[in-house]
Each structure stands twice: as structure tokens, then as C-alpha cells.
Design a protein around this nucleic acid. Structure first.
Lengths: 337, 337
DNA sequence: CTGTTAGCGCATTCAG
DNA sequence: CTGAATGCGCTAACAG
């Protein structure tokens, strides 16, 4: 049941009484074949159930029609959306998508680039956790095009699609626009690059002539639900509660909301809460979580497009695409009627 | 930067002053090579940075060292866990994982099997939505091994790993064991195969001499959060509320919980709620949702193992693996202290 | 427009 | 233990 000796291009040629090169032209839609011949051969192909051997073809053309999507862990809520979009575009271009989880393990991550050739792939879309310096060095040795997802400077070889860093401002502006005066920040250790979001917090407050109140800043050690819950409890026992919470990501926001609900604090009436990333979980809980979308699907889509473009066209300057995050207002900041 | 003319086995042979067949033996760990030669050649391989061309190798061996995971949509909450586990096992066996979303589109789904050969894959793990009859017919024509995920009878060719249908009973038994007397059912249209869960509901009640109260059965049209919310509202306006809800899946359970919370009903004190599937969202909301795990990760892992086994060993009887669902008790049924 | 020829890089007989 | 020769199935000149 999986043994039928595969029919080859020679079989078709023989059966149709033409040369294999003619068959080759036909299956590749190459021009310069008499319609009659084309028809005849096509009929034979149909009859014999011939399908070309991609290995042999690849051996010749060096094209495998496969790309890799290398991320740290598909179980991370951001990635399914990205993987889905990436596979879409790949499929539309008759490419296959190889999924690789590198677990944020630098060795494994960089190995993906180094071993691209051994992987049957023509290119890689990579979400990297490595240090840019290291990454840059490895990228230079890449044997296939790599499209990075993330923000990288000019010195980084290869294409990249990232977000401009306005998520924090979009979130903060929203809270201010809906009239919140006492805005808290719930996030992780500020020394990480999430610091950009905290910076937006400080900057926005300053620009609006609001003083930054140290006791309203809660820093958990990781950006998780539990950190959010802890934050809610912390705010609750404060002399004066905040009337809004800017959470560094959605998981924290969800935790904050759940925490508040347990304590009888109403969201958004008493406290408005907003997160960042717009993971699909945001619509799961009530109130639905306001957030800032970082367009992961869009990033995946564009990354693959850039990659395929480069695979086809070869060289040209590295490209940079910057996406603009988008504010998504839901029930955790504005009461719906 | 991606142009370095790939070094071939010939280069190595020449450089090392041996024949390519010798090099071939060495890179394949074949026996019958003098250690000295082996060492020498290995050094050259290292020096030249040679890595074998998998296309050429595959052309010869017919093995691509890739398998496909074909599911309907990676964005569906069950699949990331499965994909992750599958990729794990594949990687451990030096196989790559090609991700295919077939969108529950029967044509596309069956095409995956038919075109397996064109896909550079040695086998397929398939989550099918198609009718067993149709599927069976296509499976018979498969050119590579296929391992199904789901419950299939003997007449279905190929291996399969599924769950026995005890989820419903596990959930119901739990509710009864914690002393609930007035148990409601919230699900979708009973004519779908989810009906097995509803059957468990009825059967368990009967076995425990509890009468089935029609007004406690809520059937939404789809198994979604919104259905759950609607169910909660429905129960709430009843003369007598249920003291437990058995939801046909976790999404419904989450909706029920959110709905109750909005109405000021306490979970689990007033009403215990349990779902099925144990998707990771269960630990996201408070109270955390009790559920029955259908071991998607485990299924993915085993499916790949079966598949690789068959790829290596060829024939033998189709195998069937039945997993036992597992009750996961969390806060939505039992108050935690 | 079509046929002939020559490899792509490797694994694998078969001799030595 | 090692080398020379053959071909996997296909594409791409090059002739005709």
C-alpha cells in the first residue's frame, strides 16, 4: 500500500513517445511546446499518475520550495497566529513551512542558521532571542537568506520586519484620553528590554504633567498572570488605589483583572486595565481585555513575503519593514453598553 | 554572503587523497574503514566544513527525514501543544517537522495524503475532519505511512492514536463525588459527535439514581465562550439554579464561569464548573478551570513515534493506541485554601 | 518545436 | 579495507 514503484519522467516519455526533456518542459510549464504534444503528454501523465520527484528536481535546481519558521516555542501564545499566517503565504507560493522550536536556546537557535543547508530549506524566518552581536556574526555566514522578526539596526545583515516602539505610548495615551488620573504600571524587571514600555509610561506621564508615583509601579520578576495577580493585590492594599493599570503585556493584564475581580474591584469602572500584544486570550475573559496589537500575524506574513522575494531575486540591500502597533479598545478600559 | 560554492564529497575525497566511497562510508558511520583513514578524513571534513547534500542523499535513499503534521488550524488552542510534542520527537530522531494547516477543508486535507510524495515527507501525522469512509479510501492509496490522530476502527488502514471515550464519565463522576446533586449540562447541538459527552451525562445521572432535568440542559449552537456565557445567564434565571455545570468543552466552561461571575454567582461555592480538553487557557482565569485532559501532547508524541517506527520497519499490522483521559481538578470545582 | 546529452551529489555494488 | 563505476530522476544546454 505504499510500494507502487514510483513512475518517473522516463516512463511518461516512453509511454507518450516523446523525449523526457519534452515532458520536463511540460511539467514546468515551459514555453515552446506544441499544444498537441502538450495535450498528449498531459493525458499520459494523468493516466500514469505521474508526479515529479522533488528530490531529483531539487538536486538540479537547488531549490527545495521549503522555508523554515524558527521560533522559540509554538506554545507561546503569540506564535500560532504567526505560524498560521506564515504557512498561508508559503502555501500560496507553493512553498512548505518547516516548523522549528529553538527554545530560546542560543546554540540551537544559531544552529538553525548554520545548518539551513542540511534542512532542505531555501530560507528562514527567525525570531531570535540571541544577542544581536552574536546573531549578526552567524547571519553573515548564513548559506540561505534569513528574514528576522524584530527590531534590528542597519548593521544586521538580512531583512527584518519589526514594530516601531510605540505600543507603550498607544496604551498610555488611551488611558489618559479616557480621563484616568492615577495610572499604575505593572511589569517585569525594568532592566530587560521591556524597559521601552516602562519608558513610555514615564514619558507619557511627564508630558501630561502627571507626577510619577513610585508606589504605583509594581515590578514582578516575570511577565505572567501571577505577576498580574500579585500586582492587583498590591494595589488593593494601597492607601489610595490607582484608577488605571498599564500592564507590560497581556498576561500581566489578565492577571491584574482576575486579581481585582477576586477582590471585588470593578474593571473598568473602578480601575481600567490595558495590556500589550493582543493575544487571543484577550477576548476570552470578561471583561475583554483592551490591548495594543503588535500584529504578529502581519509580521509573519510580511516576513515570508520578504523572504520569498529574496529567494527569488537574490541580492539587493537588506530591507527593513516597520509596523505600527494598533490600539484595540475592549471592555477592560471602556464600559460597553 | 550566501554564495560559497558548497563543498562536496568529491572535494573531501580529493583533499584527503581517498575515494569518495570511503568518505561516504565515513559520514554514514558504515563499518569497515580503518580508524586511521577515518580520522584523517574526518579532519578534512572538519577543515573544509563539509556537510552532505541531503537532496542528493535523498535521491538515492528515498528518505527525506521529514514528516508532516497536518492539522486543521494551528490557531486552535489544542494544537500548539501537539505540534510542540511532535516536533520534539521528530527532532530527537533527526527528523524535521513540516506544518500543514488544512482548515478542515476535505479536499485540501486529502490532498495532503495524495501529494505526500511531492512534499518531501516520509510520513504524515494527520488530524482528519473528513468522513471515515472517504478518508479510508484515500488512505489506501497513500504513498507514505500515515498515522491518524483520533478514534478509528479496524477497517481504517494505517496506525492511529486516540482517546477512549471516558472524558465525560470522568467529569461527571468528579461532580458527583464532590457531592453535587443538581448537575447541568452545557454543550452544543447534541446531534454532533460531541453527543458522546452528553451520553455520559445522562448515563452517569441514571447510574446515580438522579433524574435528568430537561431545563438543566442547555444547547448552544457552537462550543464557544459565548455559548457558555449564554448558558450561565440561562441557568441564573431559572427557578432553581444548578449546583454544578458539566460543560462539553473548556471554552464553554470558561464562558459559563465568566457568565456566572458577572452575575455574582460564586464558582465553585455556588456552582461547580468543569470542562473538557484541558487547554492551557484553563489556568488563565480565576478560578482555574477543572477539566479532563485529552492529552494532546501525548497524542502528538505517540503519533510521531508510531510513524517513525513504521517508516523504519515497514509493514506489520496497523496499530491502535488508546489513551486514557485524565481528570484535572482545579479551582472551579473545588475551593482551594 | 523536439530530441540528445550531460551532470547535480551521493550511496552502493563490485572488484581489487 | 578501499577504489572505480553506475545510476537515483530530473533540468538545462545544445543540437537538429
Amino acid at each position: 500500500m505504499n510500494k507502487k514503484a514510483k513512475v518517473t519522467i522516463d516512463d511518461v516519455a516512453q509511454e507518450a513517445g516523446v523525449a523526457k526533456s519534452t515532458v520536463s518542459r511540460i511539467i514546468n510549464n515551459a514555453p515552446g511546446v506544441k499544444p498537441a504534444t502538450r495535450q498528449k503528454v498531459n493525458r499520459v501523465i494523468e493516466a500514469l499518475g505521474f508526479t515529479p520527484n522533488l528530490m531529483a528536481r531539487s538536486l538540479k535546481t537547488k531549490l527545495r520550495r521549503q522555508i523554515a519558521l524558527a521560533i522559540d516555542d509554538i506554545r507561546n501564545p503569540y506564535y500560532p497566529e504567526m505560524a498560521w499566517a506564515a504557512e498561508q503565504v508559503a502555501k500560496q507560493n507553493d512553498y512548505r513551512l518547516v516548523l522549528i522550536n529553538h527554545y530560546g536556546n542560543p546554540t540551537e537557535e544559531l544552529a538553525v542558521i548554520k545548518e539551513a543547508n542540511d534542512m532542505h530549506v531555501d530560507g528562514i524566518v527567525l525570531v531570535s532571542i540571541s544577542h544581536p552581536k552574536t546573531l549578526s556574526a552567524v547571519m553573515k555566514k548564513a548559506t540561505v537568506p534569513v528574514c528576522l522578526i524584530g527590531n534590528y539596526g542597519e548593521e544586521m545583515p538580512g531583512d527584518a520586519v519589526g514594530l516601531n516602539q510605540s505600543e507603550g505610548f498607544l496604551a498610555m495615551d488611551h488611558l489618559i484620553r479616557i480621563g484616568r488620573k492615577r495610572i499604575a504600571y505593572a511589569g517585569g524587571p525594568t532592566h530587560l528590554h521591556r524597559g521601552a514600555r516602562f519608558a513610555a509610561y514615564e514619558k507619557t506621564l511627564a508630558e501630561n504633567f502627571m507626577s510619577i508615583v513610585p508606589e504605583l509601579v509594581f515590578n514582578g520578576d516575570r511577565l505572567t498572570i501571577d505577576t498580574g495577580i500579585a500586582a492587583a493585590r498590591y494595589y488593593h492594599q494601597l492607601g489610595e488605589m490607582p484608577d488605571a493599570v498599564f500592564a507590560a503585556n497581556d498576561l500581566v493584564a489578565i492577571g491584574v483583572i482576575q486579581g481585582f475581580l477576586e477582590l471585588g474591584v470593578r474593571v473598568p469602572e473602578d480601575v481600567a486595565v490595558i495590556g500589550i500584544d493582543d493575544i487571543n486570550w484577550c477576548t476570552l475573559i470578561r471583561p475583554k481585555v483592551s490591548s495594543v496589537s503588535n500584529l504578529v500575524g502581519e509580521m509573519g506574513r510580511i516576513a515570508v513575503e520578504l523572504l520569498l522575494q529574496r529567494i527569488d531575486n537574490g541580492l539587493a540591500e537588506p530591507k527593513r519593514v516597520q509596523l505600527e502597533p494598533r490600539l484595540i479598545v475592549r471592555e477592560s478600559t471602556v464600559k460597553s453598553y
